[in-house]
Simulated assay, not measured.
Amino acid sequence: MKKQKKVIIFDLDGTLVDSMGAFADIAAHVMHSYYTIDSQKARQLYLETSGLPFHDQLEKLFPENPLNKKAVKAFETRKKNAYFETKAYADTIETLQALKQKKLKVVVSSNNFQDLADQYLHKAGIKPDLVLGWKPNFSKGEAHFSYIQEQLGVGRDEMMFIGDSLHDGERAQEAGIDFIGKTGTFTSDDFQRHFPRSPTITKLSELKRVFST
């Protein structure tokens, strides 16, 4: 973190919102139904490949399987029905407000569909400066980072990405953006093995100390 940050980018699920457990249960049910894989193993595979859109997860786990499209539709339908029952972490709103008071721009980058991300954040009372969801050829990672850079007029060394998955860290690393791993889906040891130069946090409120100046 050589240069002072101006934009803090957050993954949504598992980072700002305690939703990964519910999503993993839905994914396990769907994968068990469509691919006759053991539910516990399916849940593990979902979490291990988290950070990708579900259709990309399935293509990685079951390449070119003709059932993938139907499985994605089943997952997204069940997920949408359950999503609004999930809660933001207790320190989410307070932490984001504190960062904005420090004149930092707060951005959410999610692989949820744009309208779903917008609806959830509005309902939860979470108010970032910019919300980016998934659209064709526009997903979390390079596409989102480039858009943020252009819209907010910042360099990549002035951006920080915070996420709960190894794929989040990989996307940041590929884009030349500093990363902080939030433990929960993965452990601190998991993050340190893959990204030894990146710090980890267990609670969002720790960011108030990280960005104390």
Score class of each variant (00 low, 15 high):
F179W: 07
K70C: 07
V154C: 11
S110R: 01
M159D: 03
V72W: 09
S139N: 11
K140E: 03
A22N: 08
K69I: 11
P53D: 05
S139A: 13
H29N: 05
T200S: 14
T183V: 00
V106A: 08
D38P: 13
M159N: 06
K70P: 03
M31N: 05
S109R: 01
D18P: 10
T86I: 05
Q192I: 03
M160W: 14
I26L: 02
K182L: 12
Q40L: 13
A124Y: 04
V30M: 10
F54V: 13
I26V: 06
F54I: 15
N65P: 00
N68W: 02
P136G: 08
L61H: 08
F23Q: 12
D18Q: 07
I26E: 07
V154F: 02
F75Y: 15
H144A: 04
E64Y: 10
Q44N: 07
F211K: 01
A88G: 12
L121V: 10
D13L: 00
A117C: 02
T49A: 14
G125F: 05
V106H: 02
H32R: 09
L121P: 00
G153M: 01
G184D: 07
A143K: 13
D13N: 13
A22Q: 09
E150G: 08
K208D: 04
T49Y: 09
S188M: 08
I201F: 01
A124P: 02
E142R: 13
G51M: 00
K79I: 11
I9W: 11
T86E: 09
K41M: 08
Q114A: 08
A124H: 03
G169I: 00
D178Q: 13
Q173L: 13
E174N: 15
Q101A: 07
R43N: 12
Y147H: 12
R197N: 11
K127P: 02
T86V: 14
F211P: 10
H32E: 15
Q40H: 12
T36K: 14
F113D: 10
R197C: 00
Y34I: 08
L152I: 00
I37V: 15
H167M: 09
D91L: 05
K208E: 14
I126A: 09
V7N: 04
G21H: 06
T77Y: 07
T185Q: 14
K135C: 12
T36S: 14
L16R: 03
S146Y: 08
D168L: 11
R193K: 15
L47E: 05
F179S: 06
S205E: 11
I26W: 02
S139W: 04
T86L: 12
K2R: 13
L58A: 08
T15I: 04
V154K: 05
K203R: 15
